[in-house]
Design a binder for these strands. Structure first.
Length: 811
DNA sequence: TCGCAAACGGTTTTT
DNA sequence: CCGTTTGCGA
């Protein structure tokens, strides 16, 4: 059954024989059906925790083992490097041969590969550099300065969004319909930006996608070549694809004829509309229904069996998401049993909420032996992490915050990379600008301005323009360029490591940070850059250990095609050499230098998005960042109107539904225990806000909840006994039988006084539209900040902002 | 050219 | 409230 010829040329030919049957063992019926689908397009609706990645990788392995395709015929695309790596790792473990012949990667990674292979056809230099978002912004700022754009009216950041947005929609400047003068101006600047990038030989992320889409669209021979090659295309997280990515997939999959796709390949799209949380950055869930229609999808499979959570948690998730109207429809189920109820907590303030979390966490670790890294605290916005961090810090609980600057985005690393990029491409003006006077070498804004004008007049790069600048400024500028030139000479033929080390010396970066008082960390990072380069060289097989690619049947066929273009209708020199490093010129077979390849790597993969790993630590992250992860215990904090759902999203229905999906994602991260909390008051942007509990809390089934604070809509009417523990019920801490600490139970009781003008004073009874009648316990603040603490028999004690809450005084 | 104070902005984010 | 950026004065 196993086709031996697949092993031909593979270096692991001595690997133990695989029993194909083992591949399909332990799959449930839905998974098995998905893995063994016949050729043809298919949509897999994969619920959270339903074994999506497993299905995807097993499908590939099954296709290969059953001899339906060779590695060269597989294209699998993901959104993140992490997902791509995981797929490669799992496949390597499953298959007895090298997986390199397959195209597995991120959209951007594969686009890069395509553009490198066909850079001439794509109109790009072989060594084109990739701009990340920071680089793009500085390029735009530079452009705005040059054309004296009013940065008040056209903030560079917004221009960046505009340009990225256009590209995501597949639009060039000429395609944008501009009716108002502002849009016209933006389109004009978009065009100028494009010209500038082209001149400098750089592409931004959007350009990687758009340019390779256009390459496929406009070059029929090339397109058909890849269409023939990729028999099976698999797309992960399909609900997150944008318009352009979908169009790109269509180009690879076949030819559109009358709104339908004529295709000989099979596209397997895997996604979950309920986990679509990136509409704000251009993702189009609608691609799923478009896909079904345009690809005439015959097979749709739902993976609804969840292997992650207990049913109390899943019931909450299902109930919540059922409030959305725009759904393909799916219900998660488990056979793991009910598990513990979902715990809900109300805190008087955000500080108390954080204290409570920390206390719970300490008990979980101490008494239940939960590993700290199995506990996650999720929040809607990054600003919320501050309080939690400080409480964890004070309690001495190790924690790790996801988000923030990644390795290759750090200033010192960007500086170093800019020097390296100038070695590769002296015309990269963005890099030139970044380091021309860093470390300071007496080249001020004046000199740079003169240089820019000279360059513009001559229509050349900054580097080429230095000789035309006279005076002391000119001498200094020429000195800088000479320094780069010398460095380029010196590092010819040197290893990547030596090149970087030499650059760090010669640029003066190391010296600069040695003299900085806070420079030690930065020097550490620069050393880490050397390490990163070293391991890149080893992993990617540069240098002496370079691995020859296994040549499979498919690659041989490709090579044959290439050699007889006429008979196959291919352009001469339009070949499919397999490109191991994503940087091989298809025409000449020339590959990027280790340095150039490393720079691509740095741009495409900004590194880990988390603080230092190592010790067992509680995980803090936004809900967005938690997608795809799972934990034994999950806390979701700040479940308040205005925060979650976020106020900016709550106005329109689509926005609210996306917020709800976000909540759905958050809930489904938990395996065993889920905590939900909200606070009556919260410090945000320097102001105390009094938020109502999130509507999402009301959308959860009461049967699956356990209120830790004494309020349960429609249930108990008792008020919390602050300061004691007894009001919190039994089994609060089910596993240990102990009670949570008293820390949380002390609300901040503000000085009690009467606020003039509201007529609301301590002791009176008021009526609230939602909470009913309640007794005023305290009043504080003035004006818009005025608020009252009110005890509602049915809903507990709350702080309400008098400016917002509509209260009437009951006599 | 540098340092400091005022001003600004503050959902979510991968590549 | 708080981190980042800008602008001004020395």
């Amino acid at each position: 059954m196993f086709p031996l010829d697949l092993l031909d040329g593979a270096e692991e030919s001595s690997a133990p024989a695989h029993r194909p049957s083992s591949l399909l063992d332990n799959l449930n019926d839905e998974q098995l059906a998905a893995v063994t689908l016949p050729a043809g397009h298919a949509l897999i609706l994969a619920g959270a925790g339903s074994g999506k990645t497993r299905v995807l990788t097993t499908r590939i392995a099954w296709l290969l083992q059953s001899g339906q395709v060779t590695p060269g015929g597989i294209l699998a695309v993901t959104f993140t490097n992490k997902a791509a790596k995981e797929m490669v790792a799992r496949l390597s473990a499953m298959l007895p041969y090298n997986v390199r012949g397959m195209w597995i990667g991120t959209f951007h990674g594969l686009c890069n590969r395509l553009l490198r292979a066909h850079h001439v056809a794509a109109g790009l230099p072989a060594t084109f550099q990739i701009l990340d978002t920071q680089d793009q912004l500085s390029a735009i700022k530079r452009l705005c300065k040059q054309y004296q754009v009013d940065e008040e009216r056209f903030p560079p950041k917004q221009l960046g969004w505009f340009i990225a947005g256009c590209k995501e929609e597949g639009m060039r400047p000429k395609d944008v319909v501009a009716s108002d003068p502002d849009t016209k101006k933006k389109v004009e600047l978009y065009q100028l930006y494009e010209d500038q990038c082209q001149r400098e030989g750089v592409v931004d992320f959007g350009e990687l996608m758009l340019r390779s889409f256009e390459l496929l669209r406009d070059d029929a021979a090339l397109r058909q070549h890849y269409q023939r090659r990729f028999r099976f295309i698999l797309v992960d997280e399909f609900q997150d694809t944008n318009k352009l990515q979908y169009a790109w997939l269509k180009q690879l999959a076949g030819e559109m004829v009358g709104g339908r796709l004529q295709s000989s390949s099979s596209v397997l799209a895997v996604g979950d509309d309920d986990q679509s949380i990136y509409a704000f950055r251009g993702a189009r869930v609608g691609n799923m229904t478009d896909f079904v229609r345009e690809f005439d999808v015959q097979h749709q499979i739902k993976l609804e069996q969840n292997y992650r959570s207990f049913s109390n948690i899943l019931d909450c998730a299902n109930a919540l998401i059922s409030h959305n109207s725009q759904r393909l429809g799916k219900n998660l189920r488990t056979n793991q049993g009910a598990g513990e109820p979902v715990r809900v907590y109300e805190a008087p303030t955000d500080l108390d909420e954080a204290s409570w979390m920390v206390e719970e966490i300490r008990n979980l670790v101490r008494q239940d032996g939960v590993p700290r890294q199995e506990i996650a605290v999720l929040y809607r916005s990054n600003a919320q992490s501050r309080v939690i961090e400080s409480k964890l810090f004070n309690a001495g609980v190790p924690y790790r915050v996801y988000g923030g600057l990644r390795f290759f985005e750090r200033a010192e690393i960007k500086h170093a990379l800019a020097y390296l990029r100038l070695l590769e491409n002296p015309h990269d003006d963005t890099s030139f600008m970044r380091v021309v006077n860093f470390p300071a070498r007496g080249i001020g804004a004046r000199s740079v301005e003169t240089l820019q004008e000279t360059a513009r007049a001559a229509g050349c790069s900054l580097s080429d323009a230095v000789t035309a600048v006279g005076g002391a400024a000119g001498t200094k500028l020429q000195g800088f360029v000479a320094k780069i030139d010398v460095l380029r000479e010196e590092t010819q033929g040197k290893s990547l490591r030596q090149t970087i080390e030499r650059m760090l010396e010669a640029s003066g970066l190391i010296d600069f940070y040695l003299n900085e008082k806070e420079g030690q960390d930065r020097i550490e990072n620069l050393k880490e850059l050397v390490n990163a380069a070293e391991s890149f060289v080893t992993q990617e097989g540069f240098g002496k250990d370079a691995i020859a690619l296994p040549i499979d049947e498919h690659s041989r066929a490709d090579a044959a095609l290439t050699q007889s273009p006429a008979s196959q209708g291919l352009n001469p020199g339009l070949p499919m050499l397999d490109v191991p490093l994503g940087g091989t010129d298809a025409e000449t077979g020339e590959t990027l230098s280790p340095l150039a390849a490393f720079l691509v790597h740095a741009a495409l993969e900004a590194g880990d998005n988390q603080a230092q790993a190592g010790q067992e630590a509680v995980q803090l992250m936004t809900v967005h960042a938690s997608k795809g992860l799972e934990f034994d215990v999950v806390f979701i904090g700040g479940l308040e109107e205005g925060l979650f759902p976020h106020e900016n999203a709550a106005s329109d229905k689509g926005g609210l539904e996306e917020e709800r999906r976000l909540m759905y994602v958050a809930i489904t991260r938990a395996r065993k225990r889920l905590y939900l909390s909200h606070s009556q008051s919260r410090m945000l942007h320097g102001q105390t806000r009094f938020n109502l509990p999130s509507r999402f809390l009301d959308e959860l089934p009461e049967a699956n909840l356990k209120w830790l604070t004494a309020k349960q809509p429609g249930f108990g009417t008792f008020t919390p006994k602050f300061g004691g523990g007894s009001a919190y019920g039994n089994g609060f801490r089910a596993a240990s039988g102990t009670r949570s600490s008293e820390v949380f139970a002390n609300p901040v009781v503000p000085p009690q006084k009467t606020v003039p003008g509201h007529g609301i004073t301590k002791g009176i009874t008021v009526f609230h539209a939602k909470f009913g009648e309640g007794k005023v316990l305290a009043v504080e603040g003035t004006g818009d900040d005025a608020r009252a603490q009110i005890n509602f028999p049915r809903h507990g004690t709350k702080w309400l902002a008098l400016a917002i809450a509509k209260l009437t005084i009951v006599e």
